[in-house]
């Protein structure tokens, strides 16, 4: 059993206890599950993937991916991806120290206007996950890692289709509590890749969960005197879910492994592309297999399908497909199969 398997099991067991259906349902109002945060924090899970000098407990990308798959599997209502993987990546820059509490990261959406003028930070940032709840909000602005607190910003509350906080922030010439030079690789493309990997991992977990939910429901629900899962037309939906979940789960783990080695832009773009496909296809199949029951708030399927729909549109959907296509065309026909067989090792770079 690998280290990641152990970490996944630990997180899975913990979240199964605290991030229950009722807890996730209750967290819809605020978007925040304090019980989940307290439990994860007590085990140090909220600081995995952050270097020790930055206040974390260390760990590889593969470790964080294992954690996020478990978080996705239990629809944990927390900015875990931001606090661990994405903040941890920004904290690779010397001088960044993260607080023990929740950290979020500005996702660099089109239309963001943040800029540094001297020591002062101004502008707007859109769709910041849990902006209102974070102890520290990090951003990549003008080749600097900047950090500020919610109290320094004017915050417009919004949520994504899953009900997770996605807040718009306005800053008017504030003095950031953190401002250090970014490393060369810490550019918008790098942030987009780390963000995409984090979403792919969460989506892998949610996909595995809708397989379990759908397989169980179609065995329990009886019509015409037998489980609906005994009808081949319904089995098709369950199998479609299972295949897409297995494919995304595998792809994201391989992408994490390659990320720990170095260049992995291809693998990450592929993982997010496959996850986005799966969000469309598997969610549709899971809902069809459930009939009307899947449409209700009182049944758990929506906690996962709504997250899949939300995460699909975050950190790149169709854009990755075009980026991949352009890179494939640039390398040319003679490299085509090597990309498929060797990934980044073929020389493809996005």
């Amino acid at each position: 059993m690998s280290e990641q398997d152990l970490l996944f099991e630990t997180a899975d067991r913990l979240f199964a206890q605290v991030s229950t259906f009722d807890e996730v349902q209750a967290a819809q109002a605020s978007g925040w599950s304090q019980a989940s945060w307290d439990a994860a924090d007590a085990l140090g899970l909220t600081r995995i993937g952050i270097g020790e000098e930055a206040g974390g407990v260390g760990g590889s990308t593969a470790d964080v991916v294992a954690l996020l798959i478990a978080a996705g599997y239990h629809a944990v209502a927390l900015p875990l991806a931001e606090s661990t993987m994405i903040a941890g990546w920004l904290a690779n820059a010397p001088g960044v120290v993260l607080p023990q509490g929740p950290v979020t990261v500005i996702p660099n959406r089109a239309g963001d206007t943040l800029r540094l003028e001297g020591d002062l930070l101004s502008g707007t940032a859109h769709r910041v996950p849990w902006g209102r709840n974070a102890d520290l909000i990090l951003g990549l602005v003008d080749d600097h890692i900047v950090g500020f607190t919610p109290s320094q910003a004017s915050i417009h509350h919004d949520v994504n289709v899953a009900g997770e906080p996605r807040d718009d922030l306005s800053l008017n010439g504030i003095t950031p509590v953190l401002c250090v030079a970014a490393l060369p690789e810490q550019d918008p493309q790098g942030l987009a890749l780390v963000g995409a990997l984090s979403r792919s991992a969460l989506m892998a977990g949610a996909l595995l969960r809708i397989v379990d939910i759908t397989a169980q429901y179609t065995q329990e629900r009886k019509q015409f005197g037998k489980p609906v899962g005994s009808f081949q037309a319904v089995q098709l939906h369950v199998v479609r879910c299972a295949e897409h979940a297995a494919q995304v789960d595998l792809a994201v783990q391989v992408a994490a492994r390659e990320c720990d080695r170095g260049e992995a832009s291809f693998e990450i773009a592929v993982a997010k592309t496959l996850a986005n496909d799966a969000a469309r296809i598997a969610s549709r199949a899971a809902h069809q297999a459930h009939g009307a029951m899947g449409m209700t708030q009182e049944y758990l399927l929506h906690q996962y399908t709504r997250r899949l729909w939300a995460w699909r549109s975050e950190y790149g959907d169709a854009a990755w497909v075009s980026t991949l296509g352009e890179a494939v065309v640039a390398l040319g026909a003679d490299h085509h199969f090597h990309i498929i067989a060797d990934g980044s090792a073929s020389g493809i770079e996005l």
Binding site: L250, A251, V270, V321, V328, V329, I340
Partner: peptide, 25 residues
């Protein structure tokens, strides 16, 4: 290679992604 539509470029990217995934399987 010289007359690829945007849809063809997307297809080339998407199919390579699927193939890489299937090969991992």
């Amino acid at each position: 290679a010289q007359d690829l539509s945007p849809a063809a470029v997307d297809f080339l990217g998407h199919s390579v992604a699927r193939w890489w995934g299937l090969r991992q399987v």
